[in-house]
Design a protein around this nucleic acid. Structure first.
Lengths: 204, 204
DNA sequence: CGCTTAGTTTACCGATCGGTCAAGTTGACC
DNA sequence: GGTCAACTTGACCGATCGGTAAACTAAGCG
């Protein structure tokens, strides 16, 4: 009943793009509506507020990237190779964004958390949810690596937290220097943290 | 000639406080003036724009913290103890801010870089300058540690970059979770990165 | 003392902010 | 084909945004 619309999806995409490449505070509702080619009234038909849209946009982005993550972090893959693939894809993705926009844009969830953790509880909670999801992938991978004797860590959960910190920090440093090649230091850092040997031959 | 004033310093302090605990975009010039108890006209007498004030506030903050950093990173101190002291003070500082505001506020320069690197060249450059200054402390410390046989790294500059990523990432993760105790994982991560043994007895 | 210059005050600017509203339009479903 | 709910439209809101201007005041200095 009633008519259908893709305005909601267009708003989600526009919001993610604009906020990711600039910042939450630097993008207005009017900007998002203009990019999505949607009237402001429609915006508030679908979302009660700007921050609700942002939260929904992050969730939609996660849903769209999750299949890829499930593939990278498949239990059938060698644990260290999962981490290698993850770093490689992260580098490629950031390099593509850099080529497109001229800027290293970093991690959208981390950007949001950094900007709004002290100001908007819903966005802080969403950023935390995203980190928890990442942490699950990392912890499982580290547990598998330890079980196979490929890594040595005391506590896999703590190790996952340290590895995740490396992700966040390297991405942020790369954004601050506006240099994607900073990300090349991510994989060696992670392998050192896990006391894992760099795989001599990595699947191309 | 002409009258003197402390309005400039009051503006610098107010801006740093407000922006640090919320965000650049979340704080208005009026907010800063109100906190500093300075009229808006005076604001623009001292600073050409809001972002110029922010840059000046970060520089002033650096100048005020540099003596402490010089002490922590004194060449006379054992290199690993420098890192330990640094982590300990960072934890204490964030814990104090957390007790005061109810939030983990993170690193002011990193926050600024994360929010504005793609939007404001002057602020991105300032964030980069701050990271370069930190990198110098870290690289020197790592070189000293290697020279004393306390650490094993291939390239001190790259290692410093990895360690700095751990700082940034752990602070950011701590902010996103709003939990200062996340920072307790920072020191072990750094020592693992440097293949350094945790000092058995650390000066209290 | 008086001049000069630095700093203060306050009212004001146009633009934009996030958000609202009521009237209109359309399509899915019976 | 009618109906009703879903969606669209565009004008509108008060508040706030970063920034300006000009008259005013006071302190350092000769």
């Amino acid at each position: 009943m009633g008519r259908t619309s893709d305005a909601r999806e267009k708003l989600l995409n526009a919001a993610l793009d604009l906020i990711w490449t600039s910042s939450y505070g630097g993008v207005s509702v009017d900007d998002i509506c203009a990019r999505a080619d949607v009237n402001k009234g429609s915006f508030y038909h679908f979302f009660p507020s700007k921050s609700d849209l942002a939260v929904a946009a992050y969730e939609a982005h996660w849903q769209s990237t999750q299949p890829g993550l499930n593939q990278i972090f498949s239990p059938d893959t060698d644990p260290l190779d999962r981490l290698h693939q993850c770093c490689a894809r992260l580098y490629d993705a950031q390099k593509m964004k850099f080529a497109e926009y001229g800027f290293v844009v970093g991690c959208p969830y981390a950007n949001a958390g950094s900007e709004l953790a002290t100001q908007d509880p819903k966005i802080r909670a969403k950023a935390q949810e995203m980190r928890d999801r990442w942490m699950d992938y990392l912890e499982r991978t580290i547990r598998d690596a330890v079980a196979l004797g490929l890594a040595e860590v005391v506590d896999p959960r703590s190790a996952a937290q340290q590895v995740y910190s490396c992700f966040l920090g390297t991405l942020l440093q790369s954004k601050i220097l506006n240099d994607p090649d900073i990300l090349l230091q991510l994989e060696p850092a992670i392998f050192r943290l896990l006391r894992a040997n760099v795989p001599t031959a990595v699947a191309a």
